[in-house]
């Protein structure tokens, strides 16, 4: 007889935490419950959620991708430069940004899988490279993307639409949910997803069972880079003026979100819906704490404690399984 699985998985617990956080912030600050505050939070959530979905894959293999934060800024700068200085159509520049991310992701995969660099080191190197590259590409200057009112600023409507009565709808949330479902399906029901988990559970066993670990390892980092590329578009749509040299530290919020959402810190387990919920927990802390009188420094301290809690749950879970 198999033991009945508890419905209180980490994903469910984190989901409850997310709802609880919302109501706590809303109770203490009535401003937090405003629709406009919700819209602003959604705007900022898209790039964190996209980075988190992508980085969940390397994390599940037991690796990490530290290049997604500075990478995201670098890809946004490259796309912005094409529009601003070379009159490239917005759609094409967006495609270049995404492909740039994919390229850096593939490079990470090759460094880790083929050249044998530890993921931490390889992606730390590309983190530094993309940080510098963003400055080189732009001559170290901030690059504004087209505003929503400009002709080539149509890409803003991918993330937010304004109805005839001027009501704004966070369309980006629909894409995040859709991508979350697609990538959850990929992780749970495709060969690529199963091998990703297999590599994270026991890499040696995966090699012995004939899985082309090198190839799938490269693909995992390519997914992470691809989503950082997508995040760069969301970032440009919200922040508008992209500043070179920034982005460092953003990857930690995305990685933290994935870990809080139940992705095992040592690999082998994780879900994409948990990752997205976890990313929103981090975001709620980041956005909500200033509303109840805590400054952003306190938010970092509290987020640190939340992460300790999440990793502790993961450790306890593993001990129980053993």
């Amino acid at each position: 007889m198999t033991k009945k699985k508890s419905i209180f998985t980490q994903e469910v617990i984190v989901g409850i935490v997310l709802v609880a956080l919302y109501f706590i912030f809303r109770t203490i600050s009535s401003d937090f419950g405003k629709y406009t505050t919700f819209l602003s939070m959604m705007d900022i959530s898209y790039y964190y959620a996209l980075m988190a979905i992508g980085v969940a894959f390397p994390l599940i293999t037991g690796g990490v991708d530290l290049s997604i934060g500075t990478g995201m800024i670098c890809y946004a700068l490259a796309g912005g430069c094409l529009i601003r200085f070379y009159n490239v159509p917005t759609g094409l520049a967006m495609l270049v940004s995404v492909l740039f991310g994919l390229g850096i992701g593939l490079a990470n995969g090759v460094l880790i899988s083929v050249m044998g660099l530890p993921p931490f080191l390889a992606t730390l190197c590309t983190c530094m490279i993309t940080r510098g590259l963003g400055s080189v590409v732009t001559g170290s200057f901030a690059i504004p993307w087209p505003t929503a009112k400009q002709d080539n600023g149509w890409f803003h409507s991918i993330f937010k639409i304004t109805l005839a009565d001027k009501t704004k709808l966070p369309l980006g949330l629909v894409w995040i949910i859709l991508l979350m479902l697609i990538m959850q399906f990929v992780l749970a029901h495709t060969r690529f997803g199963r091998y990703t988990i297999a590599i994270g559970s026991n890499k040696e066993a995966a090699i012995l069972s004939g899985i082309n670990v090198k190839f799938y390892h490269i693909m995992v980092y390519a997914v992470s880079g691809l989503f950082a590329g997508l995040a760069s578009i969301a970032y440009a749509a919200v922040i508008k003026t992209v500043q070179p040299g920034t982005g460092a530290g953003m990857e930690l919020d995305a990685i933290g979100g994935a870990i809080v959402g139940g992705v095992s810190a040592s690999g082998g387990y994780g879900t994409i819906y948990g990752t997205v919920i976890g990313a929103y927990v981090i975001l709620f802390l980041k956005q909500g704490l200033p509303y109840i009188g805590f400054n952003a420094n306190m938010q970092q301290i509290i987020t640190g404690f939340v992460l300790i809690g999440a990793v502790t749950i993961d450790i306890i879970k593993r001990k129980v399984i053993k």
């Binding site: 401003d31 937090f32 405003k34 406009t36 505050t37 602003s40 900022i44 919200v238 922040i239 003026t241 500043q243 920034t246 530290g249 980041k286 956005q287 200033p290 509303y291 400054n295 952003a296 420094n297 938010q299 970092q300």
Partner: peptide, 22 residues
Amino acid sequence: VRVPAQTTVDLCSTEAGTILDK
């Protein structure tokens, strides 16, 4: 007076949002 933890536009926007919402 609001001051963000780091000198970035998105953190400044969060702080500004708390004032604009009042």
